[in-house]
Design a protein around this nucleic acid. Sequence first.
DNA 1: CCGCGACGTCAGACTTTCGTCATTCCATCC
DNA 2: GGATGGAATGACGAAAGTCTGACGTCGCGG
Lengths: 227, 227
Amino acid sequence: MARVMVVDDDVTVREVVVTYLRAAGYDVGEAADGESALTDLRERRADLVVLDLMLPGMDGLEVCSRIRAKGDDVPVIMLTALGSETDRVVGLEHGADDYVTKPFSPRELVLRVESVLRRVGERGTVKGSVSDGDLVVDSTEHSATLGERRLALTVREFDLLRFFLSNPGQAFSRDELLQRVWGWSFGDQSTVTVHVRRLREKIELDPTHPVRLATVWGVGYRWEPLS
Amino acid sequence: MARVMVVDDDVTVREVVVTYLRAAGYDVGEAADGESALTDLRERRADLVVLDLMLPGMDGLEVCSRIRAKGDDVPVIMLTALGSETDRVVGLEHGADDYVTKPFSPRELVLRVESVLRRVGERGTVKGSVSDGDLVVDSTEHSATLGERRLALTVREFDLLRFFLSNPGQAFSRDELLQRVWGWSFGDQSTVTVHVRRLREKIELDPTHPVRLATVWGVGYRWEPLS
DNA sequence: CCGCGACGTCAGACTTTCGTCATTCCATCC
DNA sequence: GGATGGAATGACGAAAGTCTGACGTCGCGG
């Protein structure tokens, strides 16, 4: 699993980003400032760094430069407040690979992370797809296939399926799913119920007797890996 | 192997740059002024041009404009003496893809070259043409044909189509397309929507039911390779 | 100077998806 | 078997996303 490092001093931003990246199946680390980010990177590898331009103390550009100065060529995505042409150029000058301008939608950021990992994918080993038997979910194509057939999944269904395939055999409560797939900390549990049903209609041979996305009574749902 | 053209009148600068680029595994060509650069480009293709802003006779901006005027969209990295705001803006207007300000470290320039080549999407080699089935896009001729029929595409449509053909099967958000095809870091997403529509009207049999340039709901668009 | 095409923008129509709810169904326990 | 609480279903309005037609601007060539 690819590990992504998120560096932003704003707790709220960080939490949202982290939640979404986790939902997308990434192993995520956090840091609130440049110093601790560099320290963390010294100890654990990361496959990508999401870096805010504005940071207390050392700013994002400097952090980026220092990462590069160490000979580390981990991809860096910059979060810039204003999407001015100059910011972009300045960011690239310091060795950033891509940039996302604030305000951004968490989904957009996830897409961009996947895009960058895909681009550098030749070197690093990052798999953009998860599967179970004849069922394959490809993040870069944003497509899901069951055998030969291509499934027409909505975004939510796609996220949900990808989450289950990334965590097979584990039971999750509706609340937990709301949190990890929807990114909500509150909400109506029936939302999950309904989406599970809709997903089943598309992936189960007999939706009334689900085999792969099983109900765990009184608890929630669990993905049953084949064999 | 990717070929990089270095244009600078200062022999010392040129030598250093050439040395580093060769070390990085590039095939490197040199020119001391704009005229000879253009002549050389006419004879041999290049995957990227490193161009000094200040040149004897024709300056870098003019060289850049002339390259573009010929319909050549080879990526250009400008070397500016002073990293002034205006220099950058003017340069980007003339079709440069990126900037490096003097003094620069040779290592940084190499990184930038790699970054741009990566961004352009073709792993080190800019192919002259891309195709999918009966659809052929030729970058050198700046032409697109669907079977026997020659398509009358505008510049934007051409760029967009070429981008999709270069990255088949992958889903891209409107923001990412704005960034990678338009080169914008901000902008109205509807711009993409509209250009996609116009392109569809020219390449799809039934534009209301697109087959090749598909909509990925809630995400963006994806090129569906034939079979 | 005028006409034309390309481009970006926009408002409105249209489509798809989402979340919620009432109802029905069913596993579990007594 | 009946009661009970959780789960599945079908339906629906709201919201979000996409498509479409039209318009103003700009640059270019006549």
